[in-house]
Nucleic acid binder design. Structure first.
Length: 468
RNA sequence: GGCGUGGUAGCCAAGUGGUUAGGCAGGGGUCUGCAAAACCUCGGACACCGGUUCGAAUCCGGUCCACGCCUCCA
């Protein structure tokens, strides 16, 4: 079965066919580095991670580029407020972004170009657009893109500009436009920009927002590449403008497949600082949740649906991951025992794998993929309870889980055991002695103490097991 | 006003004409000294009103509700 993905450009599901056999070129809109990224941002990056991992699972090699927007209104505003140079200010948030994606087990892209390192590419692109008559210098010395010169404008967002209500958020520095719908390619310096500016053929200024993605994606991936992604809110105007700029400049098709993920909401409401439901990744880590638990929550819903993030969901994620960990631990223990039940193991993994693959190939239906994992776990546990699986059969299932984790990035198949501290082990030994002496009151008392210290205890036929 | 999503059990979440989605939580059981873990099992569902059909959560029409975008938000 081929991979099917929903293409926002054609508004329909399509079979994915790369430009170059076996290779995928993909551009993903990255963070604006003016603050710690919030979980809504990470929803998008996790969707992109799922896409990347699914493509790899399907056998493609992936070349992914993610931009870092390190110059815009907000980075300038906040760096000035902080009394720092733009570079110093954004450097901090660039590095925190990389820490955060590591926490969330997001695979790294091949390139992370920063806007400020590509000003000359942007200027060159703007010059081309002016040359071709679609870019013009406005009364305010900024450069704008004339959308009436680009007939296909609005295809992605399915927008007819004549039907649009002009927004109320018109920036003071956008008054130089010929038409209200035109957008800035280059913004002429004004005093709010402080010492942030670059020299250009149009005087001091800085790039518009959209031009960085056009310039950098084409530099690293070519004029025409496979996939471009982002949050649904980027569809208009950002991606629409990228298409207009890029195609007007090159005369070639820009991107074959556009994918957009839905928004994240918190407790059923839009996340906003004023509602008190705004969380960065770091806020959640401070509350004691792990990156893996947060990854589960952000990954578990279909990417095109709005995702409702709740603390109940985080708690459920903890339970689920515990269950998965227990399952994998059980298999690791059994792998050292005599071989038994390899055929059974193979039939379990084959059944699970086919629905796992089928789910992912159907526009990244992660719910089916997760259900396939649980089906495998339930069937395997059942067989283990019946003493039908051990040795090479257990290893076979572990290998299978390793293959699923290429996509999930959640299973600690070879998870290291946490060392049990001396004082806890002493209590466990003491309890064991009490049990042997059938002094269950004393044994239970000791178990309570061990629980209170944050450790769990399980009596199995092979002895007592202790863990966090 | 334009464009677009969605409403599935206590909660999360697939499914788009017929055949168990899955998970968390809850009830009952097996196992265990008791637990834990695991397994078995149970209940509980398709926003509302019509229509099409042998059959509708799924298709059609209408209603209600929620949400997103409409110029620098993932």
């Amino acid at each position: 079965m081929p991979l099917k993905i929903y293409n926002s450009l054609t508004h329909s599901p399509e079979e994915f066919v790369p430009i170059q056999d076996g290779k995928v070129s993909m551009y993903t809109c990255g963070p604006t580095v003016y603050n710690y990224a919030h979980i809504g941002n990470f929803r998008a990056y996790i969707f992109e991670d799922l896409l990347r991992r699914t493509l790899k699972y399907c056998g493609y090699s992936v070349h992914q580029v993610m931009n870092l927007t390190d110059v815009d209104d907000k980075t300038i505003r906040d760096s000035i407020a902080a009394g720092l140079s733009l570079d110093t200010f954004t450097a901090k948030f660039k590095s925190s972004f990389f820490e955060d994606i590591e926490t969330l087990r997001i695979e790294k892209a091949e390139e992370y170009p920063a806007a400020t390192d590509h000003i000359s590419e942007m200027i060159a692109l703007i010059l081309t657009l002016i040359d071709k008559g679609v870019g013009y210098v406005g009364d305010d010395k900024s450069v704008y893109f004339a959308i009436n010169q680009f007939p296909n404008y609005g295809q992605l967002a399915n927008i007819d500009l004549n039907e649009q209500r002009p927004g109320e958020r018109v920036q003071a520095d956008e008054y130089g436009k010929e038409s209200v719908a035109d957008f800035a390619l280059w913004k002429h310096w004004n005093e709010d920009d402080g010492d942030v500016y670059w020299e250009s053929p149009w005087g001091r200024g800085r790039p518009g927002w959209h031009i960085e993605c056009s310039a950098m994606s084409m530099k690293y991936l070519g004029n025409h590449f496979d996939i471009h992604t982002g949050g649904i809110d980027n569809m208009f105007p950002h991606h629409e403008d990228e298409i207009a700029q890029s195609q007007a400049a090159t005369g070639e098709k820009f991107v074959n497949y556009w994918l957009h993920c839905g928004h994240l909401i918190v407790d059923g409401a839009k996340m906003s600082k004023s509602s008190g439901n705004f969380f960065t990744l770091r806020d959640l880590l401070d509350k004691g949740y792990t990156g893996r638990e947060i990854r589960w929550c952000l990954l578990a819903g279909h990417y095109r649906q709005q995702l409702n993030f709740t603390f109940d969901g985080l708690d459920a994620a903890r339970t689920v991951l515990q269950r998965i960990d227990d399952f994998l631990r059980r298999l690791r223990e059994l792998a050292n025992e005599p071989d038994n039940g390899l055929d059974r193991a193979k039939s379990i993994t084959a059944a699970s794998e086919s629905s796992f693959r089928e789910g992912l190939e159907d526009d990244l239906n992660i719910s089916l993929a997760i259900a396939a994992l649980f089906d495998c776990m339930r069937e395997t546990n059942k067989s283990i309870d019946n003493r039908e699986i051990s040795g090479d059969a257990a290893s076979c299932i572990l290998d299978y889980c390793r293959s699923l984790d290429v996509v999930f990035g959640l299973l600690d198949v070879d998870g290291a055991e946490t060392a049990v501290p001396r004082e806890i082990q002493d209590l466990v030994d003491e309890r064991l002695a009490a049990r042997t002496a059938r002094d269950f009151a004393r044994a239970d008392e000791l178990r309570d103490k061990i629980h209170a210290a944050g450790w769990r205890i399980e009596d199995t036929p092979k002895g007592t097991r202790v863990r966090i």
